[in-house]
């Protein structure tokens, strides 16, 4: 997937920040439609996006900005690292936008006791912790955050792939978010199909990567 994105950016001029905007917007639309289906309203809902330091977290931040058009809910972005350590330009940009808004509360900590209450008290969780680059043992506080998400009883929407799931094999190497639904981008990762008990309902969202950008990239190299 990384290679496809890179190809889309360098050879087609589709900038990653656009892809992130489309991803986050698509996710927000899906959550809204899902809430309609479930007959759930935004009023008084506590919506929390749990974000890691990569682009998965950035997608979730964009999603929160779009969701916050519904003023009846309470929105919190919970970042598991110091914002100054956000790894990508796109995630940093979207964090900075959120710092200027009043409608989304921002909180960051790597201390489990400080994030615990916010995750367990939520009605809707967006899982933007880990993306398709995951391998091996998950470190703290990400590991505990995954446990807390699974314990929360909230509706859980995973960004691209449930945190902890191997996108190619569907294997869980350590632990994994059990999502109500997963909104995956550009194309359905193989691992999602192999392990639906973690992904929940799978929804595919196109994020502006042209089909032509896939040329020359082997399918098993996503």
């Amino acid at each position: 997937m990384y290679k496809i994105e890179e190809n889309a950016e360098t050879n087609f001029g589709v900038r990653r920040i656009y892809m992130m905007e489309n991803a986050g917007h698509g996710l927000a639309d899906f959550i809204e439609s899902k809430m309609g289906e479930m007959n759930t309203k935004f009023i008084d809902k506590r919506i929390v996006a749990v974000c890691g330091g990569g682009n998965n977290g950035g997608d979730a931040m964009v999603c929160m900005r779009h969701l916050s058009y519904n003023p009846e809910a309470k929105y919190t972005v919970l970042l598991l690292i110091d914002p100054r350590d956000l790894r990508t330009e796109e995630a940093r940009t979207n964090w900075t936008i959120l710092t200027r808004l009043n409608s989304v509360e921002l909180f960051w900590s790597n201390q489990i006791d400080q994030i615990k209450g916010r995750i367990l008290d939520s009605d809707i969780l967006i899982d933007g912790i880990l993306g398709t680059g995951v391998s091996g043992t998950i470190r703290e506080p990400h590991s505990s955050a995954i446990d807390l998400i699974n314990k929360s009883g909230a509706y859980i929407f995973s960004v691209d792939i449930p945190s902890g799931l191997d996108p190619n094999t569907g294997q869980v190497h350590d632990k994994c978010v059990r999502a109500t639904a997963t909104v995956t981008f550009h194309r359905i990762k193989k691992g999602l199909l192999n392990n639906e008990k973690y992904s929940g309902q799978i929804h595919l969202e196109h994020i502006g990567i042209p089909r032509e950008a896939e040329r020359g990239i082997l399918v098993n190299e996503v």
């Binding site: 110091d82 914002p83 100054r84 940093r92 900075t96 710092t99 200027r100």
Partner: peptide, 8 residues
């Protein structure tokens, strides 16, 4: 990244 600046 952890701050908001207001210019008056």
């Amino acid at each position: 990244m952890t701050e908001v600046m207001y210019q008056l």
